[in-house]
């Protein structure tokens, strides 16, 4: 197998993993700090992509669409937090799962009613719509490279924010022990609103950036949501570092599995067996990874709570 192909798939995995991280970072902090399961995070990702596609079509600029989508999604998240999420703090997980599952139904149908059932087109900005040569023999999409850069930049920014600022310290304190942090005077409720809205904005970035790569359609949030959950469970709920490691693992394992397993099985088994087995094992791989991680380390790779 040529090295350039392996490198290309690894870059694809990295790119997908970083976008997954934008989703899972918000998810893991909301879970770690307020113990709230938010299935609607995938809907915010979908909204981000829809806003971006609409605004990009209206203004003619991909970047204007991106910025507008982030602002619009943050606004929706602010309303969502005040109207629904705030009422399920302290409720059991079952209630939260169901309330946010209902939100998925509501968002999906609302989007279908507003934008119609057909997928929207969000095209790559023209200045990035060409491949660049990274190494001799390895050319890679400039757009995907930009996505990797943006994801890495946001990840680094978030780490600096969480580990180097006062508000970031509050966030960490809240995630490791909410009550103690509250007793020490951390305004947990306001920090939480901020975290939730920031998480939504990051999801919108992921939705807008992935829009040209995947289809912008109803239900796009659900698949990504489950992958993001797998990532944070692997990483350890509440840990941003864990969610980054988990997201990259899921991104690379999923992408590489889909790219290489079918042909790898082709070497081992008869063609008709391999053509069935390859794709199956590839889609099951990350869930297998999660089951194994939970079996060995029931609290994930980077446990936060003591």
């Amino acid at each position: 197998m040529p090295v350039s192909l392996v490198l290309e798939q690894l870059l694809n995995g990295l790119q997908f993993g970083l976008m997954l991280f934008l989703l899972s970072a918000g998810l893991t902090l909301v879970l770690g700090m307020m113990d709230v399961v938010n299935l609607a995070q995938g809907s915010l990702y979908m909204l981000g992509a829809y806003f971006a596609a609409t605004l990009a079509a209206a203004t003619g600029s991909f970047w204007a669409g991106l910025v507008g989508a982030v602002l619009a999604t943050a606004l929706v998240a602010l309303l969502l937090e005040a109207s629904v999420l705030r009422r399920v703090y302290g409720a059991d997980h079952l209630t939260q799962v169901l309330a946010t599952f209902a939100l998925i139904l509501v968002f999906n149908e609302a989007v279908r009613a507003l934008w119609g059932p057909q997928a929207l087109l969000l095209s790559v900005p023209p200045e990035l719509a060409r491949p660049v040569t990274l190494l001799p023999g390895l050319s890679y999409s400039a757009y995907r490279l930009t996505v990797i850069g943006a994801g890495a930049l946001l990840a680094v920014g978030m780490f600096l924010f969480i580990h180097r600022t006062r508000v970031g310290m509050w966030v960490r304190a809240g995630a490791s022990n909410r009550r103690m942090a509250q007793a020490m005077g951390v305004p947990i409720r306001r920090v939480f609103t901020g975290v939730f809205v920031t998480g939504a904005a990051l999801s919108a970035v992921a939705g807008a950036l992935l829009g040209p790569i995947f289809a912008v359609q109803v239900g796009m949030g659900e698949d990504v949501l489950i992958l993001a959950f797998v990532a944070i469970v692997i990483g350890g709920i509440g840990s941003v570092k864990g969610s980054l490691v988990g997201s990259l693992l899921v991104g690379v394992v999923d992408t590489a599995g889909r790219a290489f397993l079918p042909s790898a099985f082709g070497l081992l088994f008869a063609p008709e067996v391999a053509s069935n087995l390859g794709p199956t094992v590839a889609s099951v791989l990350i869930y297998l990874l999660m089951a194994v991680v939970l079996f060995v380390r029931p609290r994930g790779l980077f446990p936060v709570h003591g």
Binding site: H93, V97, F229, T280, V284, M290, L294, P298, R299
Partner: peptide, 28 residues
């Protein structure tokens, strides 16, 4: 397997197995 975990991890691991079976069946 799942009953060795509790709480949120139980929710997620039952979901993970459901997804595995889903993709397994779809692949036929």
């Amino acid at each position: 397997v799942c009953l060795r975990t509790r709480g949120l991890y139980f929710i997620m691991i039952t979901l993970a197995f459901a997804q595995m079976v889903y993709y397994f069946v779809v692949s036929f």
